[in-house]
């Protein structure tokens, strides 16, 4: 098992490298001159030329790529933002935790609500509970996040004065943003859970459990849900990955300086350093997320655990 984890961690290095090269190349061939954006329209030709030279924009692609890769991966020098001059390392160190926290809370709320909805729908297939749950899921997917965000702010901040409308601080600042962004996740979780559970509920071991006299809710959760978790975990994983990158709208509305805004602003300003390094961090964060998903599989399903441990540990005795 430890070998499996180690192997996956090592794999992150080529992934990060690959993302770095890909993003770097894309930014290179994007039209738009960073020097002009930094210096503004009052700059003279000389100013611009000097700036371009300083940023190394005149060097050939290979040299620039090489410099970037060696700076980032060998010296761990993440550089400064071309536009603001702020240290990228500092900025990411501050912003990534906020985005992560927001995404994690969203994930917990989404699946905390989505999984029970899906279970209820599956257990009462085709009855009114099923239709209600799926209707709720549909509403969840259809609601635009920014609309919901503003509604929540009006209700909880302006009218009820319970939660802050924007900004960062303690955990209460993340509740409304998480609620506004979680509706997609609820829908995804509910649908996948329902589908998974429908499969599982027809299984023979469910009948065995009932025949043992296990109470019905235990049959559903302990015997049923636990077996149906694998596809649900997969959906959670990909959803989390999407959220890491996609919280930009929520971050803007709630004035949370996070990774989403950081990178999008970087793209708009052709701030190469920010976009490149930011993308690498997101890629690594996503890789960890996928690793967590795979480890969760192992935690839930002993057959997968055995597969990971294969080739190293002594084989389990067969009858």
């Amino acid at each position: 098992m430890a070998r499996y984890v180690l192997k996956r961690l090592l794999w992150m290095i080529p992934i990060a490298l690959g993302v770095a090269v890909l993003v770097f190349t894309l930014m290179c061939f994007c039209p738009g001159d960073p020097a002009e954006i930094i210096l503004g329209s009052t700059a003279t030709q000389e100013n611009l030329a000097a700036k371009r030279e300083e940023l190394g924009l005149n060097d050939p692609y290979i040299i620039r790529l090489g410099t970037f890769l060696s700076d980032t991966f060998i010296h761990f020098d993440l550089g400064e933002s071309w536009i603001t001059g702020a240290s990228v390392k500092e900025a990411i160190a501050e912003r990534l935790p906020r985005t992560l926290l927001l995404s994690i809370i969203q994930l917990i709320i989404s699946f905390g609500i989505g999984i029970p909805l899906g279970v209820m729908a599956a257990v009462n297939q085709n009855k009114w509970q099923d239709n209600l749950c799926m209707a709720l899921a549909l509403i969840g997917i259809s609601i635009p996040n920014f609309w919901l965000a503003l509604l929540l702010v009006i209700l909880f901040s302006v009218k009820l004065n319970l939660l802050p409308a924007m900004g960062i601080g303690g955990i209460e600042y993340y509740i409304l943003p998480a609620l506004a962004g979680c509706t997609n996740g609820i829908a995804a979780g509910a649908r996948q859970t329902r589908s998974s559970m429908l499969d599982v509920i027809r299984s023979d071991y469910i009948t065995t459990a009932r025949a043992k006299g296990v109470p019905e809710w235990q049959v559903i959760v302990k015997h049923g849900l636990k077996n149906g978790l694998i596809p649900i975990i997969t959906v959670m994983g990909t959803h989390f990955g999407k959220m890491l990158g996609g919280t930009m709208v929520i971050e803007t509305i709630f004035a949370i300086p996070g990774m989403g805004q950081y990178i999008i602003n970087g793209v708009n300003n052709r701030d190469y350093q920010v976009v490149q390094v930011g993308s690498i961090f997101l890629a690594i964060a996503f890789s960890f997320c996928m690793l967590a998903v795979d480890l969760l599989y192992a935690a839930v399903d002993p057959r997968i655990r055995a597969r990971y441990a294969k080739g190293g540990k002594r084989r389990a005795k067969k009858a």
Binding site: S203, D204, Y205, T207, T208, A209, H223, K226, N227, V300, D301, P302, R303
Partner: peptide, 8 residues
């Protein structure tokens, strides 16, 4: 083959 709970 299918009567037992695979994860228990």
């Amino acid at each position: 083959m299918t009567a037992l709970n695979p994860v228990q």
